[in-house]
């Protein structure tokens, strides 16, 4: 192919992502090193021209000092890690049996079942989170149902607690876990299962020694697709969690929109980004392994 044309084809998406994805992240880093002020724009620029014409660069690590010293932000980091971990575990707990059941159902049923898993994802995320308010609130569906069954005498306080956030996260991100795991499970080498069966392994043993180890890449990929976005989630903790549910995404939103402290919000974002590097690398590695398997 024409060299200039192929350069253009490769150049356009690369340029787009460099300008609108990578460059903005550098702006966040820069903003996190500036000092907040009242007024517009709400920060002192990093590079300033003094009255005498001198150009000075003033780097301010104060925002990071605030983050390290104020226990509020540390609890937000801890809250994000804890909530993302528990939500991911919930997704594994609910999603693994589902993915397994779909992968082992008759061939002609698999596509419709998968579509049923994906369908909620196509409807509005915000509205699906909103649905849980009606279910979890003290006179909501769940409490009414449990009281009607006689399991409880008075309504449980679930909405505005961390439990509501776990449920909302697991519910919203479940399809992201099921899909990659299903893709791994259907590719499993059937011959190995048959060999295990021939050698006298019972179904449970077959699952533990053959299926489970082989499905680990799918579990890791799916888990990261849940863990990473949940770490920075704002909508779910805001709508379902109470004021004592602290997460990085929510703190950052409050600093930015309510307190108008752009530099501190940027510093929080940098912290969140750094916390996400390890899970992201983990995900990339498993993906590459996957594509190598294909090749």
């Amino acid at each position: 192919m024409n060299k200039r044309l192929s350069g253009l084809i490769a150049g356009i998406p690369t340029f787009w992502l460099v300008v609108l994805f990578v460059l903005p992240l550098l702006f966040v880093l820069k903003m996190s090193l500036t000092e907040a002020r009242l007024g517009l724009p709400p920060y002192h620029d990093l590079i300033r021209e003094m009255e005498d014409g001198l150009i000075t660069i003033k780097i301010n690590f104060g925002n990071y000092v605030i983050l390290a010293q104020d226990s509020l932000y540390l609890s937000a980091l801890w809250g994000s890690l804890k909530i993302a971990t528990v939500s991911t575990l919930l997704c594994i707990l609910i999603g693994y049996p589902m993915a397994y059941a779909i992968a082992n159902s008759p061939k002609h049923l698999q596509t419709p079942l998968l579509m049923l898993v994906i369908l909620p994802f196509w409807t509005s995320f915000l509205i699906r989170v909103y649905a849980w308010i009606g279910i979890l609130k003290s006179n909501g569906l769940l409490n009414n149902f449990l009281m009607w069954c006689g399991v409880i005498d008075e309504p449980l306080q679930i909405l505005h607690t961390v439990w509501a956030v776990y449920i909302g996260d697991a519910y919203s991100y479940l399809p992201f876990f099921i899909l990659p795991l299903y893709a791994t499970l259907v590719k499993l080498d059937r011959g190995l299962l048959e060999a295990a069966a021939d050698l006298g392994a019972r179904p449970v043993m077959q699952f533990l020694t053959v299926t489970l180890p082989q499905s680990i890449p799918g579990v890791v990929a799916g888990s990261m697709l849940v863990f990473i976005p949940v770490m920075g989630e704002f909508v779910i903790p805001d709508l379902l969690g109470g004021p004592d549910v602290l997460m990085l995404g929510k703190m950052m939103w409050i600093e930015f929109f309510n307190n108008k402290d752009w530099p501190l919000a940027s510093a929080l974002t940098v912290v969140l980004l750094v916390a996400l590097i390890i899970p992201f690398v983990l995900m990339q590695n498993y993906e590459q392994q996957d594509s190598k398997d294909k090749a």
């Binding site: 998406p13 690369t14 994805f21």
Partner: peptide
């Protein structure tokens, strides 16, 4: 790498960084 990142990047990071740009 650049195509994989926005898939999982929390939207709050994308939002703030683009606003600053």
């Amino acid at each position: 790498v650049m195509v994989a990142a926005p898939l999982v990047m929390p939207d709050i990071i994308i939002g703030l960084s683009l606003l600053l740009l």
